[in-house]
């Protein structure tokens, strides 16, 4: 592993109800595609994308999980080693929003305590069908001390930002407790602190 050409390696796991667009988010980010008529994911899918942030190569291992209940025991096994979780819901589907507390309970139970969780409301291209008001989601995210972001995998809105911001945050955390984080390669020196949500650029 250490021979590979990257400064950081992070595992990101996408979770959330079936049909909220997890696979589309991942496809959009990793391949720049929006495959219409995507079938339900079976088990887990696995993608890799390496990005460069402030001159550092960051390898993102993205695990796209199936939302259906019968795959839950498979997807849960990936929580523990995840550096970040992207909890996704569909802004046009009230039900997918109402399930969020259940997902948080799962995270509490299976993920490690240092995991970074971000809440994503997907499908903002379907604004006319919106069922969950932005403020509601924002408030909910704040109450759970999560960052909230709204995306559209179809229009490619905020997708890049989602993953890059997350990578920035993970780098920041890795630098803060580099002893605890064994997944990240050792870092020389203490980097400048990066302000979250506004720092990213692909160089």
């Amino acid at each position: 592993m250490s021979m590979e050409d990257y400064d950081y390696l992070f595992k990101i796991v996408l979770i959330g109800n079936a049909g909220v667009g997890k696979t589309c988010l991942v496809r959009r980010f990793t391949q720049g595609l929006f495959p219409p008529g995507q079938g339900a994911t079976i088990g887990v899918d696995f993608m890799i994308k390496t990005v460069e942030i402030k001159g550092q190569k960051v390898k993102l291992q993205i695990w796209d999980t199936a939302g259906q209940e019968r795959f839950r025991s498979i997807t849960q096994s990936y929580y523990r080693s995840a550096n970040a979780l992207i909890l996704t819901y569909d802004i046009t589907c009230e039900d997918s929003f109402r399930c969020l507390p259940e997902w948080l309970k799962e995270i509490e139970q299976y993920a490690n305590s240092q995991v970074v969780t971000i809440l994503v409301g997907n499908k903002i291209d379907l604004a006319e069908k919106r069922a969950v008001h932005r403020h509601r989601a924002q408030d909910f995210a704040e109450s759970q001390s999560m960052v909230y972001l709204e995306t559209s995998a179809k229009e490619s809105d905020n997708v890049e930002k989602l993953f890059l911001d997350l990578a920035c945050e993970l780098i920041r955390e890795a630098k803060q407790n580099k002893l605890d984080n064994s997944d990240a390669a050792p870092m020389l020196g203490e980097g400048k602190s990066i302000s979250y949500l506004s720092c990213c650029s692909i160089n």
Partner: peptide, 13 residues
């Protein structure tokens, strides 16, 4: 394969 991977993950933990 997913079942195998899940069990490898559980074994690791």
């Amino acid at each position: 394969i997913d079942c195998l991977c899940a069990m490898i993950n559980h074994s690791t933990s």
